Computed example of a mutant assay.
Amino acid sequence: MVIIGVGIDVAEIERFGESLRRTPQLAQRLFVDSELTLPSGERRGTASLAARFAAKEALAKALGAPGGMLWTDAEVYVEETGQPRVRVSGTVEARAVALGVKSWHISLSHDAGIASAVVIAEG
């Protein structure tokens, strides 16, 4: 396997939360429904959403940051083991296929008011 791209991004949690409050429809443009809620059905917290947003930005960077990709064509989810994963479709999948991406590696973190993510695209 070969690394096709690496992306990293950070998001200030409070600033991200302010954006969500100021523009209520923003959450629907950035996330699929399953990303907005915890497995328990409760609404996911701002820090967790900021980390998922950072992951989507990092994923775009790993793919060369082309225009035209839809935020909702990348879904960040967590396996039962607690390991974060990404599932791509539509515009994001098309770019990944064009580059030869076969698998993704993702890491999320949030602490001290900052959410961060690293994404590695492997082919």
Score class of each variant (00 low, 15 high):
Val6Cys: 07
Ala94Tyr: 03
Gly5Ala: 11
Val6Ser: 01
Ile13Ser: 02
Ala47Arg: 02
Arg43Asp: 05
Ala74Lys: 03
Gly113Gln: 08
Gly113Asn: 10
Leu99Ser: 02
Leu26Gln: 09
Met1Pro: 12
Leu36Met: 15
Gln28Asp: 15
Val92Arg: 00
Ile8Phe: 03
Ile13Phe: 00
Arg85Ser: 13
Val119His: 12
Glu12Lys: 14
Leu99Cys: 02
Trp104Cys: 04
Ile8Glu: 03
Lys56Ile: 10
Thr72Gly: 07
Pro39Leu: 10
Gly45Lys: 09
His105Trp: 04
Lys61Ile: 11
Arg22His: 11
Phe16Glu: 09
Arg15Ser: 12
Gly100Phe: 00
Met1Tyr: 04
Leu99Tyr: 01
Gly41Lys: 09
Glu79Ile: 06
Val2Ile: 14
Pro24Arg: 10
Ser116Met: 13
Ser48Tyr: 02
Asp111Met: 09
Ser19Cys: 13
Phe16Lys: 05
Val86Glu: 02
Phe31Pro: 07
Val76Trp: 07
Leu59His: 07
Val101Trp: 02
Leu99Asn: 01
Ile13Val: 15
Ala51Gln: 05
Ala51Asn: 02
Arg87Tyr: 00
His110Phe: 06
Thr46Leu: 11
Arg87Glu: 00
Ile114Leu: 15
Val118Arg: 01
Arg15Lys: 14
Gly7Leu: 07
Leu70Glu: 14
Phe31Ala: 06
Leu26Val: 09
Glu75Met: 11
Gly90Ser: 12
Ala121Glu: 04
Ser89Pro: 00
Met1His: 14
Ile120Gly: 06
Ala98Leu: 08
Ala65Thr: 14
Ala54Leu: 00
Val78Phe: 08
Arg15Asp: 03
Ala58His: 07
Glu79Thr: 13
Gly68Gln: 11
Gly100Ile: 04
Gly90Leu: 12
Ala62Asp: 05
Ser48Val: 03
Gly64Gln: 11
Leu36Glu: 04
Gly68Val: 05
Thr81Ser: 15
Val86Gln: 11
Thr91Pro: 03
Gly90Asp: 09
Trp104His: 04
Ala96Asn: 13
Ala65Cys: 12
Gly5Leu: 05
Gly68Glu: 05
His110Gln: 02
Gly41Ala: 08
Ala62Thr: 08
Glu79His: 14
Ala58Phe: 06
Phe31Met: 10
Gly45Ser: 09
Ala27Thr: 14
Glu14Gly: 11
Val76Gln: 05
Ala65Arg: 12
Ser116Asn: 07
Val78Leu: 10
Ile106Glu: 02
